[in-house]
Design a protein around this nucleic acid. Structure first.
Length: 801
RNA sequence: GCCGGUGUGUCGGAAUUGGCAGACGAGACAGACUCAAAAUCUGUUAUCCGCAAGGGUGUGUGGGUUCGAGUCCCACCACCGGCACCA
C-alpha cells in the first residue's frame, strides 16, 4: 500500500485548521509552555529551508508538550517593517503595504503546508496599526522616563541607501544592506539610553538558562570593564585632563598622554597651542577616515604632539607630553588616556615610533622587545614597589587616588546607546512633535497610533531626510501642549523596534486597551524556551531584554527576564558546503521538497541531517533516506498484529526507544532521537511483525516529527480519536536493559575476545568467565596478573607482566 | 590581536561524558525481483598485510596522565564564528 502524502498531508492540515487543536487555551489552571521562535521577515523570496530548521526544533518540543498535557502557546508572526520591502516598492511602484500583504500570504501558505502547529489565531504583523500603536506607546514611555533622547553626533551614514546606520548595522565600515562604504556625518538623531541598563542586562544573565556561548557573546557585547578615572593636572593651568584606565597600578610608568582628535580640550586652549596648524591638519585627515579605515591602520600609529600643553603625573609630579592620535576614541572612556608604553602594546608602538621613554614598572617581560602585560614584581613605583599581586596593586592605587582626591574607581562599557532612527518610509513613525515654544512634545497616548501617511513616492530625501519630510499634511501639525503651529518628527523607528516586544503581544494579541492583559502576562510569561539564530543573540536579544526590563521597571510586566531559556540552531549550508545564497545558486527551496517528497520528509530531514546546533550541508541523497524511513513506517500497517501489550521480543527495544527519544528531544538531539526510531524500525522488520500496542507507541514518538503520516496511520488503525488526543508514552526503567550483555575482554588494554554474560553478573564471575576464554587463557599463562578489573556491562581488563 | 567553537570512514554524522570507535542515514559493490529500468528487499563496506585463520594501524599533528584516551592535560596546525586601537 503506497503512502500518498499528496492527499494525506493537505487532509490533516485542513483538519487541524478546522478543529483548532493547536490554539492555546484560556485555561490558566493547566501548566503552561510558551515556546517562541524568531518571527520571519516576509521577504519576496519566500521561505528558506533555514526557516524550516529554525522552527522545527520548538515545533517538535511544542507537540511533545501538548501530548504531555501542557497548555502550549506556540505562536508565529511577521516582522514586516524593513528596507527590502521599501526598496522593492521604490523599484516597482507597488505600495509597501501591498508588498507586505502579498509576502505574508505567501509565507503563511508555505508554513501551513509544512504542517507547523502554530496558533494561527494569534498572528502578529508589526506593520499593523493595532500592533505598532503599542510600539509607539512603549517608545513614549521611554521618552517620558528620559530614556529616549535626541543628540547631535557623528553618525554612520550610508550615501547609497541615504540612511543613518547604527554601529551594529555598519560593522566593518560597510553598510549592512548595500555593502557600500559608510561615511561619518553630523546629525540630530534619536537614541535609546540602553547603556543605563548595561548592568541589569549583565546581572540578569545569571538568572537565565541560555547556551553558554550565547551568554558569553552578550557579556562581550556589553563589555564591562573595571578601572579608575584619574585627573592629570595641566602645567601652568587649572585644567585637569581626565582619563580612564584599567591599570591604575601602572601609573608610575606613564610617559605621555594621548587624546582623541575630537577632544574638546584642544579648542578650549587653541590660543596656547603653538602648532595648531599641524593639529588641525591631522584632525581633518582623521575625520575623513571612516571607522573602518581607522581600525585598518592598527599597526601603524599616527599622531601629533601638542606643543603648549604639558600634563603632570599626579602621583610623582613628572611633566609629560600630550599627543593627539586617532588610536584613542572619543566614544569610549573620557576620550583621553594615560600611556604606559612598557605595559600596553598600543602605547608601546606609539612610543617606539615617536621616540618616547619606556619605563618598566612591572618585572617579568623584556620591554626592549615588546610591552609586557603579565604579572610580576612592581619596580620604579615608590610606595608600590615590591607588590606582586595585580589585583591588590590596583586596589591600593585606587585607595591612594581617592584619598588624595586625584581620581577614583569606576567602570566603563563597550556598549553604546542605541541609535534609534531611520530616514525611511516603511517604519513606525516616531510619535513626537517639535514645537517652537514647547520643544519636543509627545503625541498624546489617546492619539496613538500615529499612522504612517499614504504616499506615492518612497524615495528618501537627498540629504538623509525621511520621505515623510516631504509630506506637508503630515509634517505640519498643532502642538499638543500649546496648540500652536508645530512640526512632526519625520524619522521612523529602526527595524529592531517591532521585534523588541512581539513576544508580549502573542500573549494577548487582540487587546485594544493595553499591549497585553496583566493576567495573561502573568500566566504566560516568561517565554519558557526561545530558539533562533546565532546572528541575533547580540542585537535583537539584547534590545528585547532591554525593552522588557524597562517595562518591568515601570510595572508593566511581571518578571525580570523575558526568556527563561535560549538556544540557537545551526545554519543549513548549500549542497556545496557553503552558505546558501542566490548568487551561488545553491539555494534549496523548501516548497519543492514538500511537493516532491512531502512535508514529513522535509521536517524529519532538517532535524536528522546533523547536530541541531551545528551547521550542516544539505544533501539531495540523504534526504531520500528520510523518505524511505517514512515509507517504511507507513508499511508497518501491513505487518501489524493484535496485542495490547509489548511482545517479549520488543519489550526492551520499545522501552529503550521511548527513553532515548524522550530524553534526546529535551536536549535538542533530534538527530539521535530519529536514529533511535530508525533502529527500532529495523528491529521490527527483522522480527517481521509489530503489534498494535507497539505501533501505537511508535506513532506517538514519531508524531512530533512527522505528524501527517502518523495521524493517518492512527486513523487507519482505528486507535480512537486523533494522535493529538493521546498522551506521550511512558517507559519502565527496569525494562530498558537486556538480560544478557556482550562484554569485551582486554589483556593489557587490547581487546582479545568478546563474551555474553548475564547483565547482573558479579565482578568476580565476570573476570573468571573471561579467564576461561581460550585466547585469554593462553595469553596470561605463565605470566603474573598485576591487575584485573570489570567495568559493569562493558568490559574486563586483565593486566599481566 | 583577543574570545569562543570545530577537526572522527567516500559523505552527513554517532559514541551513555574515561570503558567494545564508526550507531543511524547516504553513497558504493554484490545478489533477489523485473523483458528492462526505477522502486523495493537481502548482504558487504575504516584501513594495511594475508588465500585463510589471524595480525598490525587507526578519531588534525607531537608529547603526557591512565589498566584503558575520540573524550583529560601540555604544545602546535588547520578551518569556522564573534569582537576588534575599548585604554
Amino acid at each position: 500500500m503506497y503512502y500518498d502524502f499528496k492527499s494525506v498531508e493537505p487532509k490533516w492540515q485542513k483538519r487541524w485548521e478546522e478543529s483548532g487543536v493547536f490554539h492555546a487555551s484560556d485555561d490558566h489552571d493547566k501548566p503552561k509552555f510558551y515556546g517562541l521562535v524568531e518571527f520571519p521577515y516576509p521577504s519576496g523570496a519566500g521561505m528558506h529551508v533555514g526557516h524550516i530548521k529554525a522552527y522545527s526544533g520548538l515545533e517538535v518540543i511544542s507537540r511533545k508538550r501538548r501530548l504531555q498535557g501542557y497548555n502550549v502557546l506556540f505562536p508565529i508572526g511577521f516582522d514586516a517593517y524593513g528596507l527590502p520591502t521599501e526598496n522593492y516598492a521604490i523599484k516597482t511602484g507597488i505600495h509597501p503595504r501591498k508588498v507586505t500583504d502579498t509576502n505574508i500570504a505567501k509565507f503563511t501558505d508555505q508554513l501551513k503546508k509544512v504542517g507547523f502547529s502554530f496558533d494561527w489565531t494569534r498572528v502578529i504583523d508589526t506593520t499593523e496599526d493595532g500592533y505598532y500603536k503599542w510600539t509607539q506607546w512603549i517608545f513614549l514611555k521611554m521618552f517620558e522616563k528620559g530614556l529616549a533622547f535626541r543628540d547631535k553626533t557623528l553618525v554612520n551614514y550610508c550615501p547609497s541607501c541615504k540612511v543613518v546606520l547604527s554601529n551594529e548595522d555598519s560593522q566593518g565600515g560597510k553598510c549592512d544592506i548595500c555593502h557600500s562604504d559608510v561615511i561619518q556625518k553630523s546629525k540630530d538623531v534619536w537614541y535609546l539610553r540602553i547603556t543605563e541598563y548595561a548592568d541589569k542586562l549583565l546581572e540578569g544573565l545569571e538568572k537565565v538558562d541560555y547556551l553558554p556561548n550565547i551568554k558569553l557573546q552578550q557579556v562581550n557585547w556589553i563589555g564591562k570593564s573595571r578601572g579608575a578615572f584619574v585627573n592629570f593636572p595641566i602645567k601652568n593651568n587649572d585644567e585637569r585632563l581626565r582619563i580612564y584606565t584599567t591599570r591604575p597600578d601602572t601609573l608610575f610608568g606613564v610617559t605621555f598622554m594621548v587624546i582623541a582628535p575630537e577632544h574638546p580640550i584642544i579648542d578650549k586652549y587653541a590660543d596656547k597651542i603653538s602648532n595648531m596648524d599641524e593639529i588641525e591638519a591631522y584632525r581633518a585627515e582623521c575625520s575623513k577616515k571612516t571607522e573602518f579605515e581607522r581600525t585598518q591602520l592598527v599597526k601603524d600609529k599616527t599622531g601629533v604632539k601638542i606643543d603648549g600643553l604639558t600634563a603632570v603625573n599626579p602621583v610623582n609630579g613628572k611633566e609629560i607630553p600630550v599627543y593627539i592620535s586617532d588610536y584613542v576614541m572619543m566614544g569610549y572612556g573620557t576620550g583621553a588616556i594615560m600611556a604606559v608604553p612598557a605595559h600596553d602594546s598600543r602605547d608601546y608602538d606609539f612610543a617606539k615610533k615617536f621616540g618616547i621613554d619606556i619605563i618598566e614598572v612591572i618585572k617579568g617581560g623584556d620591554i626592549s622587545k615588546e610591552a609586557y602585560s603579565g604579572d610580576g614584581e612592581m619596580v620604579n613605583s615608590e610606595f608600590m614597589n615590591g607588590m606582586t599581586n595585580k589585583k591588590e596593586s590596583i586596589a591600593k592605587m585606587i585607595d591612594y587616588l581617592t584619598e588624595k582626591g586625584i581620581g577614583e574607581g569606576g567602570v566603563q562599557y563597550k556598549m553604546k546607546d542605541w541609535a534609534f532612527n531611520r530616514q525611511r518610509y516603511w517604519g513606525e513613525p516616531i510619535p513626537i512633535v517639535h514645537c517652537p515654544k514647547c520643544g519636543m512634545v509627545a503625541v498624546p497616548y489617546d492619539e496613538l497610533p500615529l499612522k504612517l501617511p499614504e504616499v506615492e513616492n518612497f524615495e528618501p530625501g537627498s540629504d538623509g531626510e525621511s520621505p515623510l519630510a516631504k509630506i506637508e499634511s503630515f509634517v505640519n501639525c498643532k502642538c499638543p501642549k500649546c496648540g500652536g503651529d508645530a512640526k512632526r518628527e519625520t524619522d521612523t523607528m529602526p527595524q529592531w523596534a517591532g521585534s523588541s516586544w512581539y513576544f508580549l503581544r502573542y500573549v494577548d494579541p487582540h487587546n485594544e486597551k493595553s499591549f497585553a492583559d496583566a493576567e495573561e502576562l502573568k500566566y504566560w510569561m516568561p517565554v519558557d524556551w526561545y530558539n533562533g539564530g546565532m546572528e541575533h543573540v547580540t542585537r535583537h536579544l539584547i534590545y528585547s531584554r532591554f525593552w522588557y526590563k524597562f517595562l518591568y521597571d515601570i510595572g508593566e510586566v511581571p518578571y525580570e527576564e523575558p526568556y527563561a531559556k535560549r538556544t540557537a540552531q545551526g545554519l543549513i549550508l548549500g549542497p556545496d558546503g557553503v552558505k546558501m545564497s542566490k548568487s551561488r545558486g545553491n539555494v534549496i527551496d523548501p516548497n519543492e521538497v514538500v511537493e516532491s517528497l512531502g512535508a514529513d520528509v522535509l521536517r524529519t530531514y532538517v532535524l536528522f541531517m546533523g547536530d541541531y546546533e551545528q551547521a550542516a550541508p544539505w544533501s539531495e541523497d540523504s534526504v531520500k533516506g528520510c523518505k524511505r524511513f517514512i515509507d517504511r513506517i507507513w508499511n508497518l500497517l501491513e505487518i501489524t498484529t493484535d496485542g495490547e501489550e509489548y511482545s517479549e521480543k520488543l519489550s526492551v527495544p520499545m522501552n529503550k526507544t521511548i527513553k532515548k527519544v524522550s530524553e534526546d528531544i529535551e536536549q535538542m538531539k533530534f538527530n539521535t532521537a530519529i536514529a533511535a526510531m530508525m533502529t527500532l524500525l529495523n528491529t521490527v522488520y527483522s522480527i517481521g511483525e509489530i503489534n498494535k500496542a507497539e505501533l501505537k507507541t511508535l506513532i506517538l514518538l514519531l508524531n512530533p516529527f512527522a505528524p501527517h503520516v502518523t495521524e493517518e496511520m492512527w486513523e487507519k488503525m482505528e486507535f480512537g480519536g486523533t494522535v493529538t488526543d493521546w498522551s506521550w508514552p511512558e517507559y519502565d526503567e527496569t525494562k530498558c536493559v537486556d538480560s544478557t550483555v556482550q562484554i569485551a575482554i582486554q589483556v593489557n588494554g587490547k581487546i582479545k575476545a568478546r563474551i555474553d554474560v548475564p547483565t547482573d553478573i558479579s565482578s568476580q564471575d565476570a573476570i573468571a568467565a573471561a579467564k576461561k576464554e581460550t585466547v585469554v587463557a593462553s595469553l596470561i599463562e605463565g605470566k603474573t596478573v598485576v591487575k584485573e578489573l570489570y567495568v559493569k556491562g562493558k568490559l574486563v581488563n586483565i593486566v599481566v607482566k
